[in-house]
Design a protein around this nucleic acid. Structure first.
Lengths: 123, 123, 123, 123
DNA sequence: GTGGTCTAGACCACA
DNA sequence: GTGGTCTAGACCACG
């Protein structure tokens, strides 16, 4: 899986990595239990410091998306059973986005149609 | 309209203001063309630096949600025509949230049901 | 409040800082809402890198013990209402310690007497 | 006695083994003087490197929980006399946990009730 | 002035 | 070889 970082984004690099891995898990590019690139390997690949990748992995680990096995590096969680639907922050953000969509003139149907795109994606 | 700032949020204060005004416009608490509080007035009301409020207004203006007329008052835009849509950033964020929802075990129906809540709100 | 770091401990420095602040909150040396030392200030005081203090603060923040107000630095949480009794890890560790105590020949009464010491402490 | 290793734990494997054996001794699953599995046998059983099991045994031996007789078999110590007590480390950890419990809103009685659970266990 | 982020190196424990 | 920790110094956003 390719991880592309945008230098001129105002989202911190470690967050961008975190987001792309989450999206990779969601759309199937990263399978349950699959091994992630090593911290150093990924850092080299995208040309950043390994501490930054480490921070992203720590965040993913804390959120329960991955775990680190001392023998094999980092892996995607095998199951996401007990986790609640959405984090409180993400739900708030969703509310904000829906507000923006409504002001932007989108109907509920327009919005759901947009969502479909992201539900379908499975590269 | 009451604007409440959370000190322990990770979101910068000026963005919290911006978000609340956007949501106010969306759910009808702020009417099209309605005059916003003055920068200094709002700053005093919520007990923060007026530079911060100014920054929020600048952002809203730049995003096209409000405009300032020559008497220095800020008003909500009268119409939001143009093709319906979301900003590129917000659409990306939406994609990220849908990914999180899917991993969290939400079905498309669960997600839409959650969205309904935010579409209904109209205080 | 004085924070003392042990260099020859196998507990990471950022964890030691975290533990001492937690204990400070518990025994009243740090009041609810009280401002913590600044990251740089504390780092200088105990002669370590500010990133390490930052890491400790991030951990405390994530655990809900403190929050960071952009205007005033880091502060102790005002209330700890909704938090559950003990984290799963701490409860497991407690079980392990009780096992050690029993093998060490302590009766339940011996153990509770030892606990009393830590419940009483309020410097 | 079954020893189960968790790959996604932050606790090193050799310590997990050590902890489980200590708890086994405490709750009676391992009798005083009972012979432990061989290093190689246990390593194969739980599918890890025998160096790791060896490290756990060394630690247990150093802590006085087990001893190795001249026929190379490891056995649980016959008696644990001496003045009742906890290691300095464990006592410190206990203090930390009590702090967390207090902040978490547990009363002394809540805490003792939780402890009871671990005192009762004797499989 | 505050915390947040990032870099370029380094050392260590674990397995 | 893996992740985890730490350093010394730097820049940035926020208020």
């Amino acid at each position: 899986m390719i991880i592309a970082i945008s230098d001129n984004s105002d989202i911190p690099i470690y967050q961008q990595i975190r987001n792309q891995i989450v999206m990779g898990i969601s759309d199937g590019r990263l399978a349950m239990g699959e091994q992630l690139p090593t911290v150093r390997g990924l850092a080299e690949e995208i040309g950043i410091n390994s501490m930054t990748v480490n921070k992203a992995y720590q965040l993913l680990k804390q959120e329960g998306y991955i775990y680190t096995d001392r023998r094999n590096g980092a892996r995607v969680r095998e199951s996401f059973d007990g986790r609640p639907g959405l984090s409180k922050e993400s739900e708030e953000t969703l509310g904000r986005i829906i507000s923006e969509a409504r002001i932007g003139g989108m109907t509920k149907e327009d919005f759901y149609q947009l969502c479909e795109k992201y539900f379908k994606e499975r590269k």
